[in-house]
């Protein structure tokens, strides 16, 4: 009798904690977004949407995700496939590849500032090699395209590792016999990749995509370091509204926008990337 409730009792503290820290802010955000001095109003939304920064932020957040994520998935897949081979120094290569996992977005932004600033590594290198005669300017409002590029580079540098690790873990879980069977039955490397490995990897690719996309909706630190508000993003604008303007309502609207985007995109991925063989009953 006692053991029947034991698992629930063990889960209860963690569950309650999460419910509170996620449920409460959500309710609070909705409340802040829809009220002013305790009265229901849509004025906050009017204020948020009439500022062009909101749609700019929405646009840039999505644009960054659309540019960055496909590159990361392809790179990560290729790297993971290579890492399934054995070769000398593999451990060190793996170590190098996962280093960025532990580098924060702020640090990543700062590191790439070192690389790309006017007197930074890249410019000095290219100047000294005689490939350019003037430094390439990456930073400043008038070079926004370059700032965008800098963010793309930094994000590919820093967060491809997550995708790589998820896909590698997925690859390692595919039993070797599945692939050998295809080999025995006459499939060459590309056929095996297309017909066996990638379809079986679909769940891993799906979770990598979901995780990367949801994190991309929250992109903040690197953008703040490399471009400030030149390239507005949703989390950055939320932070700005809260800490500089002290407009809690508009900040909450930004937070809700991130939440909505995450839910919609997550649902889309689940809907369009489902693997039919995982859905059938036993």
């Amino acid at each position: 009798m006692k053991t029947k409730y034991l698992p629930y009792l063990l889960i209860l503290p963690a569950g309650a904690y999460l419910l509170f820290f996620i449920g409460y802010p959500l309710v609070q955000a909705i409340y802040l977004a829809f009220t002013q001095n305790g009265h229901f109003t849509l004025a906050n939304f009017h204020r948020a949407f009439s500022n062009s920064m909101f749609f700019q932020a929405l646009k840039f957040t999505l644009a960054l995700a659309i540019v960055i994520i496909p590159i990361q998935v392809v790179l990560a897949l290729v790297l993971a496939l290579i890492m399934m081979n054995t070769f000398k120094g593999k451990d060190w290569v793996l170590y190098a590849l996962i280093i960025p996992l532990t580098i924060s977005d702020v640090a990543g932004g700062l590191i790439w500032y070192t690389m790309l600033s006017d007197a930074g590594f890249l410019n000095k290198l290219l100047l000294n090699l005689g490939l350019i005669s003037q430094p390439i300017h990456f930073f400043g409002y008038q070079y926004r395209t370059m700032e965008f590029l800098a963010i793309v580079l930094e994000e590919i540098w820093r967060s491809t590792a997550i995708v790589f690790v998820i896909i590698l873990a997925g690859l390692q879980m595919i039993s070797r016999e599945y692939i050998e069977a295809a080999e025995v039955f006459g499939a060459g490397y590309w056929t095996r990749l297309r017909k066996i490995v990638i379809p079986m990897l679909k769940p891993s690719i799906q979770s990598a995509l979901i995780i990367r996309t949801l994190f991309a909706m929250q992109i903040f630190g690197a953008v703040w370091m490399l471009a400030g508000r030149d390239i507005p993003v949703l989390a950055g604008e939320g932070y700005y509204q809260l800490t500089f303007i002290k407009d809690y309502s508009v900040a909450s609207i930004y937070a809700l926008a991130i939440a909505m985007l995450s839910i919609v995109l997550g649902a889309l991925y689940v809907k369009f990337l489902k693997a039919p063989y995982l859905e059938v009953g036993e």
Partner: peptide, 11 residues
């Protein structure tokens, strides 16, 4: 996967 900013601002 719950977005951190959503949690932090109302908090």
């Amino acid at each position: 996967m719950f977005p951190i900013p959503v949690m932090a601002i109302p908090l």
